[in-house]
Computed example of a mutant assay.
Amino acid sequence: MEHIKRLVRVDQKPIGRTPRSNMATYTGLFDHVRRLFAATPAARKRRYDAGRFSFNVAKGRCENCQGEGFVMVELLFLPSVYAPCPVCRGARYNAQTLEITYQDRNIAQVLDLTVDAAYEFFADEPTVQRPLAVLREVGLGYLRLGQPATELSGGEAQRIKLATELQRTQRGQSLYVLDEPTTGLHPADVEKLLAQLQRLADAGNTVVVVEHDMRVVAASDWVLDMGPGAGDEGGQVVAAGPPQQVAQAKGSKTSPYLRRFLGNIDK
């Protein structure tokens, strides 16, 4: 433990509990986008600064929904629900702010782009492309930049947190703990995620993953097989060692699946 300087728990807790929170703001990507809008000739003529393009600031946001894009509707005997704002129709901003465009798109339209589409749209802006590239690499290319946190699954929230970490300068000596980061991922995207986890390890960090996907187990340096069953029937270390060793362990319920997966790789 003397070699560990920092602990990072990348869990599946939401990145925010209201529609005001989204991926673009959480990752810091939106700061770069707002500066681009503020630098346009039309914005400079009106003396709009980057703060004008934040839906958290009064001067640029829609006042009816306070920049959330949604209004809360209280229901009797049922939990409250969110409905699109009738004034801005979900755009979050007031009409004056939406008059400013960057490459023929206003700020609300940019927030409506998917990560993949935004990567193409900002092809000439390295500061914006860099965080977008990391989000794509962890399998989140299909998400909209401004997608509310309330619409994200636990697995998506976890990978957004991981992408935020990957953007930082890696100094090593950090311990990363992840809880089933492959949840909901297509097999092709699992490979992308593995490449990013390996990147953390290559930078001198330690990555501990709770996982049931055999791709992740087989790619690990060291496996701890917990069991022998689940819940009250678990809690013991059934086998420990490199994947090839655990695949041969007797009494392990994981070993047959791991052995089969490793056999398919060898073929």
Rank of each mutant, 00 (worst) to 15 (best):
Q158S: 14
F77C: 05
G154Q: 07
S220I: 07
R136W: 03
P19H: 04
A91V: 02
R215E: 14
L7E: 13
G234N: 11
L140G: 07
R168H: 14
T150F: 00
R20Y: 03
L166T: 07
L145N: 02
A42R: 14
E63M: 10
Y82F: 14
L197F: 07
Q236H: 12
A58F: 07
A39L: 06
Q248W: 03
R52N: 04
V138L: 06
I107T: 05
N64R: 15
K267I: 10
A118F: 11
A38K: 01
T150N: 00
V115W: 00
K59S: 14
C62T: 10
M72Q: 15
V128C: 02
E211M: 08
T97E: 05
E74N: 12
P19V: 10
V207M: 05
A43P: 00
Y142A: 11
V87F: 13
V87Q: 15
A95P: 02
E120K: 10
D213C: 09
K45C: 03
G241S: 08
I15W: 00
V57S: 09
V190G: 07
L162D: 04
L7F: 14
A230N: 14
P181D: 12
V208N: 03
L111T: 02
C85D: 14
V115A: 01
Y93E: 08
D49P: 01
G69M: 04
V10A: 04
V223P: 00
V81A: 11
A123H: 12
Y176P: 01
A38D: 01
M23C: 12
T127G: 02
G154E: 08
R20A: 14
T254K: 10
L76I: 10
V207Q: 04
A95S: 11
V223E: 00
E165F: 05
R215S: 15
C65N: 08
A219L: 04
Q248N: 05
